[in-house]
Each structure stands twice: as structure tokens, then as C-alpha cells.
């Protein structure tokens, strides 16, 4: 049996968890078994809908105390769920929650962990999972040799397969240990598409000359319902907030579409964005290294090219 942890925030299932659910279900199909889910905390979304991602049963611990995350408490509850269901594959979306909990479970369950998985396991000879390594510059196939295996699936790395079906929801009775962590505040960046989850990302570099020119990036992003990002120096000189910094030492992202404006494409920048499905580069220098990693490009001045792109998108969307 495969068990997937469904991560929630403010009562809503995180998008990445649907991918993880579908991953668990497809892995279960390969192994000739079924996939069930575990949800901690109080959720307002309809959990039977997880059936559409191939989940047959959802175990819930609807305790409001669990809406505050504590890696130790979550570890205890998920470990109990693994034991109660007899699961031998445990799947997570590779979110900040998984990064705190999955390693603990690896120890508690003596279960080999593959974090950053990008493909379904290969079970033709043992149990091997492909993961992203070297900050997206390569992949490693990791053989897991334990009876229970834990997989944390990278966001946007894997295609959801929707199916017909509805999951049954059953309470899972368990007494959580008391938490040693007190959450004193949560600060969400509101009104923006979260960068890590965005389908489309529009990103700017030092080529944009100064923060006063960022309207080009934000307007294009707004029209495309995209998140905004930037290169490291742009964040370091405070043209843009630090959470927008992508690359080897910033956030690693894998959107469907990444549009890079005035970014040279240094290897450390590419490391965080090269898993994007389609890459578009706007740069006035035809020799900019970014063009080698791009699918589409325009050699030209951003200050002339981007306004025309904005007009074209408006026209396409019938806004002009």
C-alpha cells in the first residue's frame, strides 16, 4: 500500500499535494496496490475529491492544534499512520513541510529517503528513483534498499493524471504528542502568485538598470498571471525583495514558462531555473550565455521589446 501525505495551509490542500497524490496512485498502479492519504489538521476543502487523483481512502486527524506545524508531532502521527495502514511507500510533495518531516521519518521508520524525485520509481530491478542533483544540472538514480521507502516529489516535475473516482474519508484516531514549538506568527506575501508554485514566471536582471523600470516585469507578469523573480545581484542591491531571488543560492523553480529579461544566464542563475519547461530570453547581447539554455529568444533592447510583448499579450487576451 502507498500512503501520501497531503499538505494543507489555512484549510486548503496545497497544489503540490495533488501532484504527490497522483504520483502515489501511479506508483501504486505500477506495484499492483492502492494509494491512500493522510491529512493532518482541519481542512475545509472536499477531501473525497482526492479520488480524482487516484486516492481510494483518506485518513484524517482533524485536530485544530495540528494547523500549527511541528515537525516532531507530524513525524509521530505520520509514522503511526504508516504502521496502521501497513504502507511500504510514503510519498510527499517536496515542500518545506516535507523537507522538515521526511528526513525525521526516514530515521524513525528506517526508511530510505529520496527527496527531489522527478520521475516514477523504476521497479524493474529493485526500487530506484530518479532525483534532481547538482542544483538541477544532473539527475541521480537512487536505489532504495529498505522495506519502507519515502519519496518527496519535486513540484512541477511530474504530470497529474486525473481519473474518475471519489475517496472515502475516515478519521484516524491517534493521540498527538505535545509540541515543543510555539508558532508566534505567520507572514504571507499576499496578492502575488507564490513563486514556487507559479506556472509562469517573469524574471528581471541587472539589464533592467534600476528598480524604477520594474513596471515592465510586473505588468507582463500581471497579464500572464505570472509570479515575478529576479537574479541574485538584483536582490542583493535591493532593487527587488530577497524572496524573488532564483538560482543556485536562491529558490529553485520549475515553471511551465520562464521569461528572463536582461539576465545574462550565469551558471548559478541557470541552476535554479533550468528545469523550467519553456525558457524565453530577452537580452541585447547575442553572446549572452542564457541563449544556449533558451527555447525562444529575442536579441534586443528590453526597453523596446518588452512593451511590444505587453501590447501583443493584451491583444491576444482582447484587452487592448
Amino acid at each position: 500500500m502507498n500512503l501520501v501525505f497531503i499538505d494543507q495551509a489555512e484549510g486548503h490542500i496545497k497544489k503540490a499535494s495533488f501532484e504527490a497524490a497522483s504520483y502515489a496512485a501511479q506508483t501504486a498502479a505500477l506495484m499492483g496496490t492502492t494509494a491512500e492519504a493522510i491529512v493532518l489538521g482541519t481542512v475545509s476543502d472536499d477531501l473525497t475529491a482526492l479520488g480524482r487523483y487516484g486516492i481510494t481512502k483518506v485518513h484524517t486527524v482533524a485536530d485544530a492544534n495540528l494547523n500549527e506545524f511541528d515537525a516532531q508531532v507530524y513525524t509521530q502521527l505520520i509514522a503511526e499512520a504508516v504502521k496502521a495502514t501497513g504502507a511500504d511507500v510514503l510519498v510527499f510533495a517536496n515542500t518545506t513541510t516535507a523537507k522538515a518531516v521526511a528526513p525525521r521519518l526516514s530515521v524513525k521508520l528506517k526508511a530510505g529517503l529520496v527527496s527531489g524525485a522527478v520521475a516514477l520509481p523504476d521497479i524493474s530491478n529493485g526500487f530506484t528513483v530518479k532525483k534532481s542533483v547538482f542544483s538541477g544540472k544532473a539527475f541521480a538514480n537512487i536505489a532504495v534498499t529498505t522495506a519502507i521507502r519515502i519519496i518527496a516529489v519535486n513540484l512541477n516535475a511530474f504530470t497529474i493524471q486525473e481519473v474518475e473516482g471519489s475517496a472515502t474519508v475516515v478519521p484516524f484516531t491517534v493521540q498527538p504528542i505535545s509540541s515543543k514549538v510555539k508558532v508566534s506568527g505567520v507572514d504571507k506575501i499576499t496578492g502575488e502568485v507564490p513563486l514556487g508554485e507559479a506556472d509562469i514566471v517573469v524574471s528581471g536582471g541587472r539589464g533592467l538598470k534600476g528598480p524604477e523600470n520594474w513596471g515592465l516585469v510586473t505588468e507582463l507578469a500581471g497579464l500572464l498571471n505570472a509570479a515575478t523573480a529576479c537574479s541574485r545581484p538584483v536582490a542583493d542591491i535591493h532593487w527587488r525583495p530577497h524572496h524573488e531571488h532564483v538560482g543556485q543560492t536562491g529558490l529553485a523553480i520549475a515553471p511551465n514558462l520562464y521569461i528572463a529579461i536582461g539576465i545574462s544566464g550565469a551558471i548559478q542563475h541557470l541552476a535554479g531555473v533550468n528545469r523550467s519547461k519553456t525558457i524565453v530570453v530577452i537580452n541585447k547581447d547575442p553572446e549572452a550565455p542564457f541563449f544556449k539554455a533558451a527555447d525562444y529568444g529575442i536579441v534586443g533592447d528590453a526597453f523596446e521589446v518588452v512593451p511590444k510583448m505587453i501590447d501583443a499579450v493584451k491583444k491576444m487576451k482582447g484587452i487592448a
Binding site: 526516514s106 528506517k110 526508511a111 530510505g112 529517503l113 529520496v114 530506484t128 530518479k130 542533483v133 538541477g136 544540472k137 544532473a138 539527475f139 541521480a140 538514480n141 537512487i142 536505489a143 532504495v144 534498499t145 529498505t146 533550468n274 530570453v281 541563449f291 544556449k292 539554455a293 533558451a294 527555447d295 525562444y296 529568444g297
Partner: peptide, 16 residues
Amino acid sequence: LTRVASFDLPPAKAGV
């Protein structure tokens, strides 16, 4: 608990 069986490089881009 785990072992690297092999590495792969990502497929080269078709070109811009």
C-alpha cells in the same frame, strides 16, 4: 539506506 545507482545529464536543448 540508499545508494546512487547511476547519474544522468539532462537532454541537451534543441537550440534557441
